[in-house]
Write a protein that binds this DNA or RNA. Structure first.
Length: 558
DNA sequence: CAGGCGTTGCTGGA
DNA sequence: TCCAGCAACGCCTG
């Protein structure tokens, strides 16, 4: 038995299973976990049941176009992730049909719709994957309350992650481990991850009558109102379990690559053949079972002589996911600076113009802008590119709040995952987990060392495609004649840099030092007043610097 | 309380 | 490709 404390679903189950004489109707509620393979909730739902209702609720809040958003998409998700989800649903529906079932799609507020279905279809067994995100925690409380009153059995297994975050937090004395090594120590052997996969399903109980509910098929993006999204280049990722398993097999088939995988050695500028498995989005939606992935990697490692190890290895990457899920689950207000006990309080700058320049790929630093274009078009960037642009926005150059960058990533990334995205922004902004704020990624030389010719920039920023490689990472230094010849005049065809990197970096370091000093002095109990006064101090200092500069070099000509 | 360590910094030299 | 030097953080361990 893995759990020290039996989770609530086990208690609920024991109340009802013994008293169920006749076979009830079951409902499998898909949220994440959009797959047939290794799906404990689906497996349990399909056993000892009369009819099985597979349900997915489309939340208009998440799916319907928001004309006011900064990019095509809904209030919360960019068009790439919406498409990926729709493709995953089509694939799930088609797999269910092969097994004699189908996916029932309903629209509305998920909790309301679900409870309505439970009533109308006389469901006595409700199965859904346990979810640690605050949104689902709140939703599931409502659903569980209703189910317990209505006498509905609930089965809600932890199957999205390799560990149950609650177990690890409990083992660690009630707090989530905050370093990777201590996480590994506390977590120990992933016994559940090594346990047998869910039984292979070759047939499912049929779907009963769907009275009094408006069932629809999986909508297309056009049907949702996304008809006029122009695409010169769109994401290369197709959603769904079938695609996930195909890509997994491709990655795994190269045993040497799996065994020698070292994350920091990956090339962030590789885009024709990216340097990682590209499976993150499939893990996020549960098109791929993390347990199945884990076991496939283990299998390969057992067949080779030498292999890399966590944190840099491929298994190490899966464990990073566990690390952030645990930290996120164990930290109230994990997605905020205020009220987050592990987050350093830093008076970030409030500058919407700079934020927009970063978000819209107009910083004037080609490496940063190319990455932001890739994010927008593909819904994906290499991990190190994410580091580079996140550092630039926060503690490296612009000193803008990590929550603002987090929002942009959350919307645009296909693989955006609440725990991992917030965790990485905390990390990169030196707000938590990582504190060496002097280590700053250069927006010029970091990309250059992987891609000296600038092919990545040329691809995603075609305006710079003819810029000689000597200048492509800092085109503002190119003589005007070269800019003209390359058909890219800086300030006209492509923006001037929004900051001087050297100056901005020095200023960021100084501010980080002062902010850290304040956190230390106040024993991390920083009040709003303390923040305001430090922010004022920063503003005054930068005013002084600006006026000094103006006095030093009066430059009438541009 | 000191010393070692930490997914993934940069530059310059061998 | 690797290394030292840079300047130096918090967390963990003994």
């Amino acid at each position: 038995m893995r759990c020290v404390n039996p989770p609530s679903y086990l208690l609920l189950r024991s109340c009802y299973t013994t008293s169920m004489a006749s076979q009830p109707n079951s409902l499998i509620w898909f949220r994440k976990g959009l797959r047939i393979h290794d799906n404990p909730a689906l497996e349990y739902a399909s056993k000892q049941t009369n009819y099985l209702y597979p349900l997915f609720v489309i939340d208009p809040h998440y799916m319907e176009p928001d004309p006011n958003a900064f990019s095509p998409g809904s209030k919360r998700a960019g068009i790439n992730r919406i498409r990926f989800l729709l493709e995953s649903l089509v694939d799930l529906d088609s797999s269910l049909k092969k097994l004699g079932s189908r996916l029932l799609i309903l629209k509305g507020e998920p909790g309301e719709v679900l409870i309505h279905c439970l009533k109308e279809w006389n469901i006595k067994k409700l199965c859904f994957e346990y979810d640690t995100e605050p949104y689902y925690q709140a939703l599931d409380v409502r659903v569980k309350e209703y189910a317990s009153v209505a006498g509905i059995e609930i089965f809600s297994p932890v199957s999205h992650t390799l560990f149950n975050p609650a177990d690890i937090i409990q083992k660690n004395g009630g707090r989530a481990p905050l370093s990777y090594q201590s996480f590994l120590k506390v977590a120990g052997q992933p016994t559940w991850a090594l346990s047998p996969l869910s039984t292979y399903i070759d047939v499912l109980p049929s779907v009963g009558k769907t009275v009094n509910c408006e069932i629809c098929t999986v909508p297309t993006a056009t049907e949702l109102g996304y008809d006029n999204c122009t695409e010169e280049e769109s994401t290369p990722f197709r959603g769904g379990e079938t695609e996930a398993l195909k890509m997994l097999n491709e990655s795994i088939s190269n045993k040497e690559w799996v065994a020698q995988f070292e994350k920091p050695k990956g090339d962030p500028s590789a885009f024709l053949k990216p340097a990682t498995t590209m499976l993150s989005a499939y893990l996020k939606f549960g098109c791929l079972s993390s347990r199945y992935f884990y076991q496939r990697i283990k299998e390969v490692l057992s067949e080779v002589k030498t292999h890399t190890a966590p944190p840099v290895s491929l298994l190490g990457q899966l464990l990073w996911r566990e690390f952030f899920y645990t930290a996120a689950f164990g930290t109230p207000n994990f997605d905020q600076m205020i009220g987050n006990g592990i987050c350093k309080k830093i008076p970030w700058k409030d500058d919407d113009e700079l934020l927009a320049a970063w978000r819209d790929a107009k910083t004037g630093f080609p490496w940063i802008d190319a990455a932001m274009v890739q994010l927008r078009k593909w819904g994906w960037m290499h991990h190190l590119a994410r580091h580079s642009v996140a550092c630039f926005l926060t503690r490296g150059d612009l000193f803008i709040h990590w929550e603002k960058g987090r929002d942009v990533f959350e919307r645009l990334l296909i693989d955006s995952d609440w725990a991992i995205n917030n965790g990485n922004w905390l990390w990169l902004s030196c707000s938590s987990f990582f504190y060496q704020y002097n280590r700053i990624y250069s927006p010029i030389s970091f990309g250059k060392k992987y891609d000296p010719n600038g092919n990545y920039i040329r691809h995603f920023l075609p305006v710079l495609k003819d810029m000689p490689k000597e200048y492509i990472y800092e085109p503002w230094t190119a003589p005007l004649s070269i800019q003209t010849k390359a058909k890219c005049v800086i300030g006209e065809d492509y923006p001037k840099p929004v900051v001087c990197h050297e100056t901005a970096m020095a200023e960021c370091r100084r501010r980080m030092g002062e902010a850290y000093e304040m956190n230390k002095r106040l024993n991390n109990l920083v009040s709003e007043k303390d923040m305001t006064s430090l922010r004022r101090k920063f503003e005054c200092q930068s005013q002084v610097v600006k006026s000094k500069k103006q006095k030093q070099k009066p430059k009438p000509d541009a």
